[in-house]
Nucleic acid binder design. Structure first.
Length: 802
RNA sequence: GCGGAUAUGGUGGAAUUGGCAGACACGCCAGAUUUAGGUUCUGGUGAGUAACCCUCGUGCAGGUUCAAGUCCUGUUAUCCGCACCA
């Protein structure tokens, strides 16, 4: 019989759905296992071949866990708010909800065709009011505890479209749509105080099992640094406070730099004789992003403040103040003391503007380049600090500054608070009203969800407000507090909001009283294994850890961390090795692959393509090898014998493979697990027949990778009761995983000169004498003195001779 | 620029703690079957070499070691993220 994937795959997908074999149980005696993949954004392009890589990987783990006796929760849903849907809606005058509905239907059909064992009864959708009711509820809890606040923040503003743009919509400083200039404009925005959790987000990484590179990236993103704040007096009498990680170099501070947005500049406007020049520079800086501004490679620019200068608090010298865009208003105090001798950026700036460079740490030639090494230098030209090491000097200067009341030690984080407002339609409305008398007032929880009203146009308004601002009926409301006139907040939440807590909703998605019931939360939290992309490490992963910690603090969830274990997959690139994208024309459509080769082949190939954690290019030639392998599996039914059990000739091969496949799956080494199954297939081919017991084991091992074909063979040949996915995962005998005799290499002076067949458990002495008995080896070492003899058990014997 | 990662045959990749480089596939070559082609099966396939039991070989340059793809130093290239893309 020919392997015809189409009817088989359809049949089993229906059977699984009807039987509910993959449904999680909320009351079970079995141990629980919660497997999670990042839920997709249902884009108009449909499923991408990249999506199934992660879904198949955790599907394999979920299926294996079920066979190992776990009660598995493996859910899926839709992260459906977002800019592309909104832009499509604007362009085509369709309600974004309609667009979303259509896209979800397509995605769902595509995902189901892959035979992934999701529990579809738990499907969620972030744009469903029953879902975003709880996103809004969580926001209100933030607000009530002072962690949501309003702040003036710069946004990208297209001068022609007159609307706020996402960073992605700004390409090379101009608007993606109209090509006009984009500037940074200040708007009042809702913020979430993630910085309050900065330290805990670092510390609690000790509680979780994440790859080191993920932890390192989060730690660096949070960017904790220890330094000092120091007050400089200025000639206006105002105090100018700086943050520095190198307070030890204070004696070398020969000028100061403030960011172009620094508030003191406005205060000093009438004292500054070159205000026009300063204004021009500010306007210039407003055009650039922080990213462009901090680029070191570019030429430093700046303007000296004419009319105001500062006094170095330890040397008493008057020093100039500049504005320059390499100083960011968002980090530290928005002002720095510049020590050109020991900071590269300051050094470049000083060279350009001819400022004095004073060496305060000995060890380099500061006229040639900045000397930034903290480990070896000794303080010089530094009054009370002379002769100390950098570390000692840091301590002493902070003590001195604290005593004098002009400075203190300070921990700073690069992490900034989360800008939580979007001037867009397609997002969760922020459930706050503004009352002239009472200020910002939260909506009562009983009024949630605050639904998105129907609007005529989804385009942001001319003044940069969300389209909701035009809905005067909706905007004008009464204050829940005093009953007076009030206006609703018209900004919406960012897409990150809904995805910050979605894994909690899966536990109890139909609950009307809470985001999830206490029992369900207690049973399922935390997620046991969460797989996603590296690109989500610093935003989504950090945001959701932050939300979870907050929910933990208010007693709403039982654990301090949401995810016990995190792993990440590499991207699937186009056949040309570049990122798959429509514009590059290298997109592979999963529907075509499933149609031509079948879901099992697709799954197998995506797992075999390479190291799961690394990027790998798609190969339309490579996929054929996987199809061929499945056909060989299918044809095993033609060589079935009447013999029983696992035969002696295949016993070791089977035991080894059971061990390897099990271990490799756990280690995400799917490619080598499949290689092991292929090697076992070759062994079976060599034997020329297979017993039903052998085929049983083989089918169970292969089932997580190729669920449809294995179920069909199982049923056709009546290999056992129930479905393959309900069988017990096979066990192996450690003693039967190794051959009795093995081949080891014999090296003389690093070169392999012979190979020996020896007993697997041979001792060093026996191995060495066996080696020396070899003619070739004897010839190699004759007349030489043996310097060293090494035996690596099971691998090699080595003789070093002179 | 900052942070994180990667580099192995013609291709994708494999290689516990440093211990036989190239598992398993793809492709290619030869043969067999069938033959219209494809499929299937068998054998071969890192490079050099007439050939080997020889020599070279894991981005590049050094180093440590009996032994380095693996460890150390430097360097180059590529990829991911950089806060309103998801």
């Amino acid at each position: 019989m020919k392997y015809d994937h189409k009817p088989i795959e359809k049949k089993w997908q229906e059977k699984w759905e009807q039987s509910g074999v993959f449904h999680a149980s909320n009351n079970s005696d079995k141990p629980k296992f919660y497997a999670l993949v990042e839920f997709p954004y249902p884009s108009g392009q449909g499923l991408h071949v990249g999506h199934p890589r992660s879904y198949t990987a955790l599907d394999i783990i979920a299926r294996k866990r079920r066979m190992q006796g776990y009660n598995v929760l493996y859910p899926i849903g839709w992260d459906a708010f977002g800019l592309p849907t909104e832009n499509f809606a604007i362009k085509n005058h369709i309600h974004p909800a309609e667009v979303t509905k259509k896209n979800i239907a397509r995605f769902k059909q595509q995902l189901q065709s892959l035979g992934i064992s999701f529990d579809w009864s738990l499907e969620i959708n972030t744009t469903d009011p029953e879902y975003y009711k709880w996103t809004q509820w969580i926001f209100l809890q933030f607000f009530k505890r002072g962690l949501a606040y309003k702040k003036e923040m710069a946004v990208n503003w297209c001068t022609s479209c007159k609307c706020v743009l996402a960073n992605e919509e700004v390409v090379n400083g101009v608007c993606e749509r109209c090509g006009s200039e984009v500037i940074r404009k200040v708007k009042s925005q809702w913020m979430l105080k993630i910085t309050e959790y900065a330290q805990r987000l670092i510390d609690d990484l000790d509680l979780v099992d994440y790859p080191d590179r993920v932890k390192a990236q989060q730690i660096n993103w949070i960017g904790r640094s220890t330094g000092a704040e120091v007050d400089f007096h200025t000639t206006t009498g105002d105090k100018l406070t700086v943050y520095t990680t190198r307070p030890d170099t204070l004696y070398g501070a020969t000028y100061m730099v403030v960011s172009p947005e620094h508030p003191l500049l406005e205060k000093w406007a009438d004292k500054l004789r070159n205000m026009e020049e300063i204004r021009a520079y500010q306007a210039e800086a407003a055009r650039k992003s922080d990213f462009e501004r901090t680029e070191v490679a570019k030429e430093k620019t700046g303007v000296r403040l004419d009319g105001v200068s500062a006094i170095n608090p330890v040397t008493g010298k008057e020093i100039p103040i500049f504005i320059s865009d390499y100083v960011l208003v968002s980090y530290g105090t928005g002002a720095i003391m510049a020590v050109p001798a020991h900071d590269t950026r300051d050094w470049e700036f000083a060279k350009k503007f001819g400022l004095p460079i004073i060496e305060v740490v000995k060890g380099g030639d500061v006229q040639k380049e900045a000397f930034t090494d903290c480990a070896t230098g000794v303080m010089v030209n530094s009054g009370i600090l002379d002769g100390l090491t950098v570390e000692e000097a840091k301590k002493k200067i902070i003590e001195y500054l604290t005593e004098k009341g002009i400075g203190h030690s300070k921990v700073n984080f690069k992490l900034r608070d989360w800008v939580f407002s979007r001037q867009r339609y397609w997002g969760e409305p922020i459930p706050i009203v503004y009352c002239e008398k009472c200020g910002y007032v939260p909506l009562p929880e009983s009024e949630l969800p605050l639904k998105l009203p129907e609007v005529k146009s989804y385009e942001p308004t001319d003044n940069g407000e969300s389209p909701l601002a035009c809905m005067t009926d909706w905007v004008n409301t009464t204050c829940p507090h005093c009953g007076g006139k009030a206006k609703r907040e018209t900004d919406t939440m960012p897409q990150w909001a809904g995805s910050s807590w979605y894994f909690l909703r899966y536990m109890d998605p139909h609950n009307k009283e809470a985001f999830a019931g206490k029992d369900a939360l207690k049973y399922w939290t935390p997620v046991d294994w969460y797989n996603g992309g590296m690109e989500h490490t610093t935003l989504h992963l950090l945001y959701s850890r932050f939300w979870h910690k907050f929910l933990y603090d208010i007693g709403a969830v039982p654990t301090p961390e949401p995810y016990a274990k995190r792993t990440s997959h590499g991207m699937i690139l186009g056949e040309n090795g570049e990122k798959m994208s429509k514009s590059r024309g290298n997109v592979v459509n999963p529907d075509e692959i499933v149609d031509t080769y079948g879901a099992d082949t697709m799954r197998l190939y995506e797992m075999f393509i390479g190291d799961f954690e690394k990027a790998a290019p798609w190969s339309s030639a490579g996929i054929k090898g996987c199809r061929r392998f499945l056909e060989r599996y299918w044809n095993l039914q033609n060589i079935l014998t009447d013999e029983n059990g696992v035969r002696k000739s295949l016993e070791i091969a089977f035991n080894k493979t059971i061990k390897k496949v099990g271990e490799d799956i756990e280690a995400l080494k799917f490619n080598t697990a499949i290689a092991a199954l292929m090697a076992l297939m070759n062994d079976i081919s060599d034997v020329g027949s297979i017993t039903s017991d052998e085929l049983k084991i083989y089918s169970i091992l292969l089932n997580p990778f190729a669920p449809h074909a294995t179920e069909e063979i199982w049923e056709t040949l009546k290999l056992g009761n129930g479905m393959v996915c309900q069988q017990e995962w096979p066990k192996y005998d450690e003693a039967k995983c190794m051959e009795d005799t093995i081949e080891i290499a014999v090296q003389v002076n690093g070169k392999v000169r012979a190979r020996l067949n020896v007993a697997a458990d041979i001792e060093k002495d026996a191995a060495l004498s066996a080696a020396k008995a070899e003619e070739k080896i004897a010839a190699e070492i004759s007349g030489k003195t043996i310097v060293k003899e090494i035996y690596v058990p099971g691998k090699l014997v080595k003789i070093v001779a002179k």
